[in-house]
Design a protein around this nucleic acid. Structure first.
Length: 750
DNA sequence: GGAGACTGCGTTTTT
DNA sequence: CGCAGTCTCC
């Protein structure tokens, strides 16, 4: 059977496991996705299950798509009946099909994080609560945490929580219910409640889904686990794939404990470990294994490869963050000279703020780069504005959207008018839109005009394609004209135009197949939708909320890949630069006070290391500009946890640094081959201007040795100001650290 | 209603 | 330092 060709024994065992609960511990690069998809294909091919009996859950849309693509390439079957998607996408599908039983309008809107926040802000204002006493973000976190642990306001006791918060939680849920909107956590909670309450429905799905497969199981939260258990019932096997060593989302509610709970609760007989790694060379894996071995709470796993040791890891100590960036530029150029593509090189960091210095250096060097993790397409303000109009067309009671665009583009409806309308709405118990008739005067006339616009767009929609509706909406709402008239609005206007394309593309995809996250008629208990166009619009809006879209265009271009370690999870690169390996930054200082915080940081480091296929470059800086001031960091403890024999330490020509000599503690350099550093002329200047303040023009840089007539030999630890105000802090050892005005002080460089 | 000053804040973030 | 969100004044 060619499906099973080339699987290693453990993979084969996992793929062909009998129908029983299974836990697959899949190490980084061990062929996890392959096992998951081959398992599905094998189950179908051997007739153990039909496509409609498969439920496969992932966390990201990308992973879900990848899974579908692979299955389709393995089997000549229609994946239409299969439920493959994200937790949220599948919940959306479930709730659309059974909206009545779930107590929702069929047209319920999905609130993304921003929508939810503005909804909460509106609520706080309406309840006359002081935002100081109740920060919206904190309330949002409170509500989401509660929901993700399966609790509603009624389930919370006042003890421990502020009673006001619980009241606001209840009021928020009531507001969402009234407006027909559902936040991300609600999608899950509503589904869990629906399945818990409706026995017949639950049994229907338990009967239907004969095999349930879960990806990245270590990232599931309490509610998602409950959801899985409800669908599996007592009989259906769950095939859970995960890696406890790659659990890095605890701060978002993920509970690694689900893995051992699952093992216990389902009496999993055999945990299959996938430990053969097909990604990285030996030295990289040795480093990863030794590092993660320092974690106490593990299920236990050791990656190995038959690819040979490969290159050693390289460790670079930079004088400053700017110099670290300059070094990366040099190294990248070197790799390029040896034929490497930029696309295969990643620069990773712990926190987004670190990217700026690196971007600066890359920009000046002319190297192409792409930063992941910014605003995504459907999260952009202009796109959200357009979507708000579309949502109003779909459901005029959507107050979130109403408030967002009633005066955007500006049409003379101010805060006072909106307040007036809000009062009228509250008095009459209607939505904002529904209260328009109750407002008189000039404000009333403005509102009526807005209402007319929405009504006309809705009427026109009946005879239009989705793309035409989108286009007409952005034109007649005035959005397009607004951005065209703005001096920096060209990009935004372009994004609006792109939204029309996105709508057209979406419809095309719908027609060719039925992807996850789309309401499907024909499921048990499904209620037919009102009209074809309505359905298309609603699907599109759900799609926009559930899939934020690509980070940016140009993904395939040959450019360096910059991202946080979190964002790199699941990806791999020939060469990885892992930067900012300093105490306080990685591991992050905030994590040290949390229980299990250090272990999670170490798992993060483990994820970072295992991204590299051939080359892994580690770096840290003696000084780093953070929050407007220079900080001196020590080398990360994680660096010292790596096996010395896998590392080559590099050094810049001038290593006499303040941090090194006086503060860095045990600083012997390990590894053997010291590299004769070949700084390009002016490299120090390159990294300046940004990281280390006034390096430029002073002829000095951090870490440089200098001689003063009175204080003797010293080391530059900080530079600030420029021109005649340029000053340097210099450590003169016995004389202490002095701040000198460079225009005055006579310094000799040494 | 909107541009420009002012303040406060600063891990990570699949949906 | 750089930004996002708020405030103030026209």
């Amino acid at each position: 059977m060619d499906l099973l060709d080339d699987l290693n024994p453990q993979q084969l065992a996992a793929v062909t496991l009998p129908d029983e609960p299974a836990l697959i511990l899949a190490g980084a690069g061990s062929g996890k996705t392959r096992v998951l998809t081959t398992r599905i294909a094998w189950l179908i091919q051997t007739g153990r299950v039909g496509p409609a009996g498969v439920l496969a859950v992932t966390f990201t849309n990308k992973a879900a798509r990848e899974m579908l693509t692979r299955i389709e390439s393995m089997l000549p079957i229609n994946t239409r009946g299969m439920w493959v998607g994200t937790f949220h996408g599948l919940c959306n599908r479930l709730l659309r099909a059974h909206h009545r039983d779930a107590g929702l309008p069929q047209t319920f809107q999905i609130l993304d994080v921003q929508d939810q926040l503005s909804s909460i802000k509106r609520l706080i204002k309406a309840a006359n609560v002081d935002e100081e006493r109740c920060p919206p973000r904190e309330l949002q976190f409170f509500i989401n945490s509660a929901k993700e642990s399966g609790r509603r306001a009624a389930d919370l006791s006042a003890g421990g929580h502020d009673r006001r918060w619980i009241e606001l939680f209840a009021a928020y849920d009531a507001q969402c219910q009234r407006e027909g909107s559902v936040d991300f956590a609600e999608l899950l909670l509503r589904s869990v409640e629906l399945l818990t309450r409706q026995q017949a429905l639950r049994e229907h799905y338990q009967e239907r889904f004969r095999h349930i497969l879960v990806d990245e199981f270590q990232d599931t939260n309490a509610l998602q686990y409950r959801w899985l258990k409800l669908l599996a019932g007592k009989t259906r096997p769950i095939f859970a794939v995960g890696d406890d060593d790659q659990s890095i989302y605890r701060f978002r509610g993920a509970n690694v404990g689900n893995m051992s709970d699952f093992q216990r609760e389902y009496d999993v007989r055999q945990v299959i470990k996938l430990e053969q790694n097909y990604r990285s060379h030996g030295n990289i894996l040795d480093a990863a294994n030794q590092l993660i071995g320092n974690n106490v709470r593990r299920m236990g796993k050791r990656l190995w490869t038959d690819a040979g040791p490969g290159e050693k890891l390289r460790l670079f100590e930079a004088g400053s963050d700017g110099l670290e960036a300059a070094w990366i530029v040099e190294e990248v150029r070197d790799l390029q000279r040896h034929g490497a593509r930029l696309l295969d090189i990643a620069i990773l960091y712990r926190a987004n703020a670190q990217s700026r210095v690196i971007e600066h250096a890359l920009f000046n060097s002319g190297l192409a780069y792409r930063v992941y993790g910014g605003l995504r397409f459907f999260e952009r303000a202009e796109v959200k504005h357009a979507l708000a109009y579309l949502r109003l067309i779909a459901n005029s009671d959507d107050d979130v959207s109403f408030a967002r665009v009633v005066n955007f583009p500006p049409r003379g409806i101010g805060a006072r008018s909106v307040e007036q309308l809000q009062q009228a709405a509250r008095a009459a118990g209607t939505s904002l839109f529904g209260a328009i008739a109750a407002v008189g005067g000039r404000a009333g006339a403005s509102f009526a005009q807005f209402s007319k616009l929405i009504g006309e767009l809705r009427a026109a929609a009946a005879g239009q394609s989705l793309a035409e509706l989108v286009e007409e909406t952005i034109e007649r709402s005035g959005l397009m004209a607004h951005y065209r008239g703005e001096k920096d609005g060209a990009d935004r206007a372009e994004n609006l135009a792109e939204l029309v394309n996105a709508a057209a593309g979406f419809v095309r995809e719908q027609e060719s197949d039925t992807g996850a996250g789309v309401p499907v008629a024909g499921d048990a208990g499904a209620q037919p939708s009102a009209s074809v166009h309505d359905a298309a619009l609603h699907s599109f809006l759900a799609h926009a909320a559930l899939e934020a879209g690509d980070n940016q265009a140009g993904a395939g271009q040959d450019a360096l890949q910059l991202m946080t370690v979190h964002a790199a999870k699941g990806l791999e690169f020939d060469t990885v630069f892992l930067t900012g390996l300093e105490e306080g930054l990685f591991p992050h200082e905030n994590s040290l006070s949390e229980a299990d915080g250090l272990e999670e940081e170490r798992r993060l480091m483990y994820v970072a290391i295992t991204r590299a296929r051939r080359r892994l470059n580690l770096s840290f800086a003696q000084s780093r500009m953070l929050h407007g001031q220079t900080r001196y960091g020590l080398r990360s403890r994680f660096v010292d946890e790596l096996p010395a024999k896998t590392i080559t330490a590099l050094t810049p020509r001038l290593r006499a640094g303040f941090a090194t000599a006086a503060e860095a503690g045990p600083y012997e350099t390990r590894g053997s081959a010291w590299r004769r550093s070949d700084w390009p002329a002016g490299a120090a200047g390159n990294g300046s201007g940004h990281g280390a303040g006034a390096e430029q023009g002073t002829g000095l840089r951090i870490g440089q040795g200098v001689r003063h007539a009175r204080f003797g030999d010293g080391v530059v630890v900080r530079l600030q100001g420029s021109g005649s105000d340029a000053r340097a802090q210099i450590n003169f050892g016995a004389f202490g650290v002095k701040e000198l005005l460079l225009a005055v002080a006579k310094l000799q460089t040494s």
